[in-house]
Design a protein around this nucleic acid. Structure first.
Length: 894
DNA sequence: CGTCGGTCGTAC
DNA sequence: GACGTACGACCGACGT
């Protein structure tokens, strides 16, 4: 701590400019400049942190004429006006200074210098030591034994001894120095040809201006100087007056007012938040909000009943569960937390192993108390990834109803391009609030404990905070969703989908572990043989799975010709394209291809799937994620059931391991050409529309158009090429890629594409229009109003720009298809429930839904699915659904 | 002993 | 450089 009798007088005006110029550009998302505000705040906070001043004040100039202008019309006449960008930040800066509870001193008709000079004098008279915080040399004249100057940017202190040592004069004499030298930036005339250096020399030698003029004869040798001094005699007098800081301004603030108090952290946080100073905001929010939170643990029946009736009378509440596992199908319930008001939260422990002496009701009794509330559809619930809680509670016999919002989904809808929609990130972004992390309460690494072992009070703080911030985020995100026009998407698709997905995940899908086990052994054996053969061909053992080592073997040891480098050019590429090309020249590539195929199937599918079979249900319960993809598609993980092999015979076997429950059959319902149909709809292309309305084979039709042959003369090869073109269009393919794909020249590929666009002129116009429109809005949207920002469409980097352009075309198509199938899933689930059917929806794979139906429901289900899926929403073209039925997933694909 | 980027391969 | 959207296995470098 600094001695309490030190006072810091901060020259705000000079720091304004320094901060403004030090940071070139900084603006809020709304475009409000904050560079000076940020720089100023940083300097100020650093000063407070490093020096801990007991007393301080910030001094500003006041706009308008000062007493110096009365002395000299031209004072500061050459000074350009303050840049507008800076001027508008001054109120912001002053607001922050006020929030930090530091007094601001300014007075009409005076400059900051005069006020600093005055308070420096007063403070010294009262026994203070004074530190003037400034970068302005004019202040040197105010230095005394008890008043020094500190430049925080250079971190230099200038005191009387320093002035003496450097210039050979007393600080008081500096007025005379400036009087001689003038100040061009303030338009103060001095002696011609005399700058500060010369002036210092003269004053050091003669002591004062007066003395110089009294002894002017001595300077006759220096003719020019003598002339200039003589000519400027009158001006020097004026000049000296102008540079003299007035130390006797009539001021009325007492020094007590300079005594610093606690920051108004709440106010400061709000300001930092509004200026989007994220780090600063989070630092202050921690201090600001820790105190105002009230989190309570509820552990008696009476309190639980009171809480339930309180919740019944609110407009809705946030709920969160604490469990023993991140997999909701394996998680045991440990606690419940709720919040219905900002800064509050309640935690109900239901399954802790150590309740530190607190008597808890039985888990069943607790759940019985909360069940009616949770199952009441008229009481709104919000959650963060509430699908998780839905599944956990469903396994305890509670079917949550009345879900109206999910903050994770909202965050994703608002910002689908970014990862990380965890509550901790949301809380940081919205409130600058740093949440207690899971590891904070459970520890990590080998010391980690299960949540059920976490001490109650710690668990309560953690869990209640989750509910609290979910509720707080809900109020903010709901508005943002509304403002961006995303409410219909949220309410008609994403929120209703939550429970549909929860049901699908709980249903899971049965797998034949014997088939998988058998496959694993077979693959294992063949892999062993291949491995030996490859080592033999290489003449040594190495890690075949290491593309790096493999590259060395192939291209250095065996001397095969390297075809291409890897994308990030870290080494030789050894991908399937390369190996296929090399297969003619050596025996090894073929073995490698086989090895890769089998290895992939074994590790990614066969073995992985076996390990994920649920011990109780005997089924695989994937997780469908609503908040991953930029286009709005679902993703699937643990395991990913959306990329189970199908194209090649080897992989297809894996689908055979997916089987229906006993007495049931698997039914696949897939939308035929959904993306091309949506392209037809969006582009309103006459030929595409006609083709779909006539239920033609679209690839054949495209072949007909592109290759200009008569109907009936389209060969299989032509159709296959047309298929590539059709898909290429959706993905924004180049002639280069198409030529590779089709094994034709780039020129030919170009011609095909030209032909395509000539025939499908509507598609061409749609693509051009979409890109053009995206350039103006930097945003694309789907049929159901899902949005994706594409700022790169304006990038000067051609790579990024081209990428954004392709995404601009693809996203409305892919995203609309995703919207559409999601809606179909919701309607299917409704229909299944209305009809009280035993059939279940199990999986969704982008344009396909897999059902499990009892044999006797099979036909009814297909009729229902056809009806629901084909009429899910009206389009310019009909939607068509193909069905497949079978005793395993592979069979159901036909 | 975890994390993370790179490479490869699977799906729609 | 060169086709959109995913998940994930494996390797190897890097940090604890």
């Amino acid at each position: 701590m600094a001695a309490p009798n030190t006072i810091y007088l901060i020259d705000g005006s000079t720091f304004l400019y320094r901060a403004f110029h030090a940071i070139r550009s900084l603006v809020t998302s709304k475009g409000h400049p904050t560079n000076a505000t940020f720089g100023f705040t940083r300097i100020l906070l650093k000063l407070l942190k490093d020096k801990h001043p007991g007393y301080a004040g910030v001094f500003f100039d006041v706009k308008g004429p000062t007493f110096r202008h009365k002395m000299f019309d031209e004072y500061k006449a050459n000074r350009p006006p303050m840049p507008e960008e800076l001027a508008i930040q001054i109120p912001d800066i002053k607001a922050i200074i006020k929030a930090l509870n530091i007094p601001i001193i300014e007075k009409t008709g005076y400059e900051a210098d005069d006020l600093v000079g005055t308070y420096a004098r007063i403070a010294q008279a009262q026994g203070f030591k004074v530190i003037m915080v400034t970068g302005d040399k004019d202040f040197i004249q105010l230095i005394t034994d008890d008043c020094t100057l500190w430049d925080p940017m250079k971190d230099t202190i200038t005191d009387r001894a320093g002035v003496k040592a450097e210039m050979g004069i007393e600080p008081e004499q500096f007025i005379d120095v400036l009087g001689l030298a003038g100040d061009s930036s303030d338009n103060i005339p001095g002696v011609k040809g005399v700058g500060v250096k010369t002036a210092v020399k003269l004053i050091a030698e003669y002591g004062s201006i007066n003395n110089i003029y009294n002894n002017l004869d001595q300077l006759k040798k220096k003719k020019k100087l003598h002339e200039n001094l003589t000519a400027s005699k009158k001006i020097v007098d004026l000049s000296r007056n102008l540079v003299t800081i007035d130390r006797h301004v009539d001021v009325n603030q007492s020094l007590d007012d300079f005594q610093l108090r606690e920051f108004d952290t709440g106010k400061a946080f709000e300001l930092f938040q509004s200026f989007e100073f994220k780090t600063l905001a989070s630092e202050f929010s921690e201090k600001a909000d820790k105190s105002k939170k009230t989190y309570k643990m509820i552990h008696t029946v009476a309190d639980m009943e009171n809480l339930v009736s309180a919740l019944e009378n609110k407009g809705g509440f946030a709920i969160d569960t604490e469990t023993t596992d991140i997999d909701p199908m394996r998680a045991d319930l440990v606690g419940l937390s709720v919040s219905y008001m900002n800064d509050t939260g309640f935690y109900i422990p239901v399954g802790h192993t150590n309740t530190s002496g607190i008597q808890m009701p039985e888990k069943e009794d607790i759940l019985r108390i909360f069940k009616p509330l949770l199952e009441n559809p008229d009481i709104a619930k919000v959650g963060q990834n509430i699908k998780y809680d839905v599944i956990v509670l469903a396994r305890y016999g509670i079917e949550i109803k009345g879900i109206v919002f999910d903050t994770m989904i909202a965050s994703h809808l608002l910002n689908p391009g970014t990862r990380g929609h965890g509550l901790d990130r949301i809380a940081m972004n919205l409130f600058g609030h740093k949440m207690i992390s899971y590891e904070d309460v459970t520890g990590k690494g080998k010391d980690q404990i299960g949540f059920q072992e976490v001490p109650l009070d710690l668990a309560a703080d953690y869990a209640a905070e989750d509910a609290d911030l979910t509720f707080m985020a809900y109020t903010v995100l709901k508005k943002q969703i509304e403002d961006k026009g995303l409410t219909p998407l949220m309410e008609t698709i994403e929120v209703p989908l939550i429970c549909v997905l929860a049901k699908m995940e709980m249903a899971g899908i049965r797998v034949d572990t014997d088939v998988l086990g058998q496959m694993s052994l077979e693959f294992e054996a063949e892999l062993k043989t291949l491995e030996q053969k490859i080592y033999e061909l290489a003449g040594e053992e190495f890690n075949i799975n290491s593309s790096q080592q493999l590259g060395v073997i192939l291209f250095e040891k065996l001397g095969l010709k390297s075809v291409k480098k890897t994308r990030k050019k870290t080494g030789y590429s050894t991908d399937v394209q390369v190996l296929t090309q090399l297969a003619d020249t050596h025996e090894m590539p073929e073995k490698l291809l086989r090895y890769r195929t089998l290895g992939k199937l074994k590790s990614t599918y066969v073995d992985a799937l076996s390990s994920l079979v649920h011990p109780e249900t005997g089924r695989i319960h994937t997780s469908f994620n609503q908040t991953i993809t930029v286009t709005g598609r679902l993703s699937s993980s643990n395991p990913n059931l959306q990329n189970i092999p199908i194209r090649k015979s080897e992989g297809k076997k894996i689908r055979q391991a997916f089987i229906p429950a006993t007495g049931c059959t698997l039914i696949s319902a897939d939308y035929s050409q959904i993306e091309l149909r949506l392209l037809a709809h969006c582009a309103k292309d006459p030929i595409l529309i006609e083709s779909f309305r006539n239920d033609e084979d679209i690839h054949t039709r495209t072949a007909l158009e592109v290759f200009q042959v008569l109907p009936g003369l389209v060969t299989d090869e032509m159709r296959s090429q047309a298929k590539s073109i059709n898909f290429g269009i959706i993905y924004g393919m180049s002639a280069f890629r198409l030529s590779n794909e089709l094994g034709i020249s780039r020129k030919m590929a170009g011609i095909y594409i030209d032909n395509y666009f000539k025939r499908y002129a509507g598609v061409k116009a749609f693509i051009d229009k979409t890109i053009e429109q995206t350039r103006t809005t930097c945003e694309v949207s789907t049929l159901f109003g899902r949005k994706r920002r594409l700022d790169d469409i304006r990038s000067s980097n051609a790579n990024l720009r081209n990428f954004a352009q392709r995404a601009a075309v693809n996203t409305p198509i892919q995203g609309s298809a995703a919207d559409l199938i999601k809606l179909a899933m919701i309607k299917m689930q409704e229909a299944l429930e209305t009809e009280n059917m035993a059939s279940q929806m199990l999986l969704s794979v982008h344009d396909e839904i897999i059902f499990e139906a009892p044999e006797q429901e099979k036909d009814k289900l297909m009729a229902m699915a056809k009806q629901v899926m084909e009429n899910v929403t009206p389009l310019e073209v009909p939607l068509k659904v193909n069905f497949g039925v079978g005793a395993n997933w592979a069979e159901a694909e036909h």
